[in-house]
Each structure stands twice: as C-alpha cells, then as structure tokens.
Simulated assay, not measured.
Amino acid sequence: MPIAATEPEFTAEQVGWRFTLGAVLLVGAYVAWPMIPLVMASDLDPGVKAGVSGVLGATPFMSKFVAIAVMGRPAYYFLKRKVYLRLRRRFAHSPAE
C-alpha cells in the first residue's frame, strides 16, 4: 500500500516527547501478559481473578488506542511512514517465488 502524497511528512524532532510516551505505552503494555499467571496463582476470589486477568489480557490491545491518542497525528504519520518505508525496502530486495 503506497503512502498517500497528500499526507504531511514529519521529522523525529517534530513529534518529540509524545512519540516517546506512545512508544513506551505500546511496549510497556506487553508486561501485563506475564502477570496473568501471578494473578491466577493468588488467593483472590475467582470472580476477581477472572476480571483482573481479563483486563491484563486486553491491555496490549487497549494500549494501542491510548498510544495513538497520546502520540497525535504527527507522530502517527511519522511512525506509519517509517514502517512502510522499511517494509518496502525489505520486500523490494527479496526474490520473487
């Protein structure tokens, strides 16, 4: 999928701290999954265990929406452009089967 020519181009300096905070949220949310076995091994009520483990299991999914909201439009376009360019370079050099 090509990047639209009408999308504004932003640099790393323009996206600043919001991009960093969004990236930390995205990566940090995956810490929730290893905590699920700890919750299940605890002495909590079974209903509470189910609720807490459900929230921990959904945390990586929910964090993507929060991170995009924190990053804002400039950081979203910056990240999108970097990922597409890297994928395009990677698959442009791979041999066709």
Rank of each mutant, 00 (worst) to 15 (best):
A96Q: 13
E13S: 14
E7R: 10
R89N: 11
A96D: 09
A5V: 03
A5K: 14
L26I: 02
I68R: 03
F78P: 10
A12M: 07
R18S: 11
R86S: 06
H93D: 12
V39D: 11
P37D: 01
W17T: 08
P34W: 07
V24F: 00
V52R: 07
K80E: 11
L79M: 15
R73I: 10
F65T: 05
R86N: 13
A69F: 04
D43G: 15
R18C: 02
M35D: 05
V39P: 13
L79D: 04
G47A: 06
Y77G: 02
P46C: 12
S42P: 14
T6D: 13
G57V: 01
P37L: 05
E7C: 00
R90S: 07
K82L: 10
A32C: 00
Y76I: 08
Y84E: 14
F61R: 13
L85N: 15
G57P: 03
L38P: 00
P60T: 10
A23D: 08
L87P: 00
V31N: 05
Y76E: 12
Q14C: 04
Y77M: 07
E97R: 12
A58C: 07
R81I: 05
M35A: 10
S53W: 10
G22L: 05
S42K: 07
T59H: 00
K64F: 14
E7A: 12
L87G: 01
M62E: 04
A12C: 08
W17D: 07
P34I: 04
H93S: 09
R89Q: 14
M1Q: 09
V31W: 07
M35K: 01
V15W: 01
T59E: 08
E97Y: 12
K64T: 15
D45P: 00
P34S: 01
R88K: 06
E9W: 01
R86K: 13
A58Y: 10
I3C: 04
S63L: 04
G16F: 04
V48F: 04
F10C: 07
T59A: 15
A50Y: 05
R90A: 12
V70K: 03
I3D: 05
G16R: 13
M1G: 12
